[in-house]
């Protein structure tokens, strides 16, 4: 059909793009993770497993990784608990307001991440909106300190930021459910509650899995929310990577941690893709 030159001309640019911005950086990351840093802070190009040993030897790395996963898990659960009912309501019961409400969910995505994170800072801070209100109505005498600079603040902010990312795939999967299946279920005597659990929910599982994957993977790798709102107890694994590549100047260890994260995330994506396939029927 098309000449070889034409085919080369259209496949080459994306290939170059992927090579320059994905394959080469990942290959470098891979190499760095097996190199080391000399006391004079120079990269030593000698292959060894020291970085990976260090990773499992020093408690703080694994602890922070587990804390990050725990934070990401909580964000995922809360984002699903908020996103699913919202998507369900919009898809099945919003009627004519559907488009408007959909836009209202999407609009926050256009607001800079930083603005949304800072907004929570002004709400949760000791002079913030929430503490001022609580003292004003005499619920507390002193500002509540745990609100800001804590894992709580990180989970809250990330839930706020990533709920639209769980909402969207769930909404899409609900929109794809043929409405005559819902009618068929009612027709066969199933109440709305039975219809939800026997027909609607099972058919929306691919969307739930996709949404959960988004929320978990995105919050697992987040470093701005913990940086701005996490305080010392809310540090996440990406903050460590940032400091290793920055102030600490230990690129090899940073690369090793990054690579572990990458493997973890790819494994998760693989798992979720397989589960989604198992639960889609068209």
């Amino acid at each position: 059909m098309f000449s070889r030159a034409y085919r080369a001309a259209i496949t080459l640019p994306p290939l170059l793009w992927v090579a320059a911005f994905l394959l080469i950086p990942y290959a470098l990351l891979f190499c760095y993770s097996f190199w080391s840093v000399s006391p004079e802070q120079a990269i030593v190009h000698s292959w060894n497993l020291d970085n990976y040993r260090e990773l499992f030897r020093v408690n703080v790395y694994l602890q922070t990784l587990f804390r990050s996963m725990w934070i990401a898990a909580r964000v995922t659960i809360f984002a699903l608990l908020l996103g699913y009912p919202l998507a369900y309501f919009l898809s099945f019961h919003a009627g004519k307001r559907k488009d408007l409400l959909y836009q209202l969910v999407i609009i926050p995505l256009w607001v800079s991440y930083l603005v949304r994170a800072y907004a929570w800072k002004t709400i949760l801070g000791s002079d913030g909106v929430l503490n001022t209100l609580l003292q004003y109505v005499h619920l507390t005498k002193h500002p509540l300190e745990f609100l800001l600079y804590s894992p709580f603040a990180v989970v809250l902010t990330l839930t706020h930021i990533y709920t639209p990312f769980t909402f969207l795939p769930i909404y899409a999967s609900l929109e794809h459910i043929p409405r005559n299946l819902v009618e068929a279920s009612h027709d066969l005597g199933a109440s709305p509650f039975q219809t939800f659990w026997r027909v609607i929910f099972p058919l929306s599982i691919p969307g739930v899995l996709a949404g959960a994957t988004f929320a978990f993977v995105l919050s697992l790798g987040d470093f701005l929310a913990p940086l701005l709102l996490g305080g010392p107890s809310g540090i996440m694994i990406s903050n460590i990577v940032v400091s290793l590549f920055g102030a600490a100047y230990n690129w090899p260890l940073g690369a090793a941690i990054s690579l572990c994260m990458l493997v973890l995330v790819i494994g998760l994506l693989f798992l979720s893709e397989n589960l989604e396939k198992k639960w889609s029927f068209r």
């Binding site: 043929p178 005559n180 068929a184 005597g189 199933a190 058919l203 639960w279």
Partner: peptide, 20 residues
């Protein structure tokens, strides 16, 4: 009555079988 309380059943135009 809502449809699920009627002793009436329907065969739909495109069958509407539950795919799962």
């Amino acid at each position: 009555l809502p449809p699920y309380r009627r002793r009436v059943n329907t065969v739909f135009q495109h069958y509407a079988l539950f795919p799962h």
